[in-house]
Design a protein around this nucleic acid. Structure first.
Lengths: 232, 232
DNA sequence: TCATTCTCAATTGCCAACATTATTTAATTT
DNA sequence: AAATTAAATAATGTTGGCAATTGAGAATGA
């Protein structure tokens, strides 16, 4: 079985700080803390049963990720995510993932190609079983392998900036009826372009793929009402 | 006189942590700490005359910025920047700045437009005076205003990821003979496109502008020998 | 001599306490 | 009673210290 490196984000789960960073990140993405809420170090440290130090370090990282805004001597408040933001993220992702596919088509190794094929096969398996949970995992892996194959540290790092929004969006998208089947077909086409080492085609198909995912997700969000907005 | 907001990066200069973050960032970019060097908390805290805590927090942020790699219980080692990385950064910037120009052309306010005009005039003034120091400042402001005018938090945040590489590259580029004059002309053209609210044209001119800057900078680096590589 | 184990120095991970700053509440003055 | 000032409260900023982990070199054994 192929081995998959852990993403930049999921690093350091060993340390308290790492776990807290992840925890807070998820809590914000999942809406436990909403726009305008302030993250109070002392409160969090009590809740989590740790000292303030790891909390502080985690908050400093959230700040750089853009999830919170830190005001000197006042504390950190959670930043909101508007529909506009989501659309912007998708537009940027469209370009970045397109670029990744282009470079991957040029630089992918045989080993990585084998991984990619395997993952698409697994996607097919779980799509037919309607198992959205496993599917989501392999959907992520498909994109991860392409990023890895692009051999660009910078590209991977840039994407990691909004890694968590992407995760969230994927989960929601794949649960929407019909989208999984469509996504699978698009992945097959991208895989084929990479096998043919056709960089232009791989890029084009990928930007289309992200654009479709974007349309799907945004219409989901708009139907379901507001996304991360305050609801009081 | 127009007022310019401080960039996301330059925030928190008030706090110790913020200053140390900036300091370390510059030291890495300037090559004081090179690839493979490890940042030792105790040593840094002595050198800078502060306790370890602000150092630690700054290092956590550098980690997220991708400038260092933090190994649990071992410490942070400085990551290298290859020519390939620089080229990748420029490619990504090309797209992101292009996007910013496109959105700016659609969304810029009259006030921001006035700022932009003023900055270009100042650029002209200092270009004629051959004052690379002031020039660099207004060159940065030109791009900052466009990002701000794009009204996209996400876009600004994405760029902030490699803000410091950009700074460094600009300084070097503008010092190269003839480039300043050329850059000014390109800025004038971009400004004109934005005035005409011609989004397509603004995007195209901007990607070209970044591509030219890229070519110039990369040839500089290649002539001068290695950039950030270890020299022992 | 080589390999293995042990010890110790160096370093990070985490914590509790102190200092500073901001905010809220109470007291005082007009 | 309203406004201003002063005290108290709560939060962050910073510090130094202790525990846990790592790595290197010494000591030991084959």
């Amino acid at each position: 079985m192929a081995k998959f490196e852990k993403s930049e984000q999921e690093n350091n789960l060993a340390s308290l700080r790492g776990r807290i960073f992840n925890q807070l990140q998820n809590d914000i993405i999942d809406g436990k803390y909403q726009e305008g809420d302030s993250l109070i170090e002392t409160k969090l440290s009590e809740e989590m049963g740790v000292s303030r130090t790891p909390i502080r370090e985690a908050i400093r990282q959230l700040e750089l990720e853009g999830l919170v805004e830190s005001i000197p001597n006042k504390g950190a408040i959670v930043k909101g995510i508007s529909i506009q933001d989501i659309e912007d993220i998708y537009t940027i992702r469209m370009m970045i993932e397109g670029l990744a596919a282009r470079w991957a088509a040029e630089k992918i190794t045989e080993e990585e190609l084998a991984e990619l094929k395997e993952v698409v096969d697994l996607e097919e398996f779980y799509t037919n079983k309607n198992d959205a949970n496993h599917l989501h995992k392999f959907d992520s892996q498909f994109h991860d392998i392409i990023f890895r194959a692009s051999k660009s540290k910078t590209l991977m790092h840039t994407l990691s900036t909004f890694h968590h929004y992407v995760q969230k969006a994927r989960t929601a998208s794949l649960a929407s009826p019909g989208r999984a089947q469509k996504a699978l077909e698009e992945h097959r086409a991208i895989l084929q372009a990479i096998i043919e080492r056709n960089a232009e085609k791989a890029e084009k198909l990928t930007t289309e793929h992200v654009k479709n995912a974007s349309k799907n997700f945004i219409s989901l969000v708009k139907n379901k009402g507001e996304y991360y907005e305050r609801q009081d």
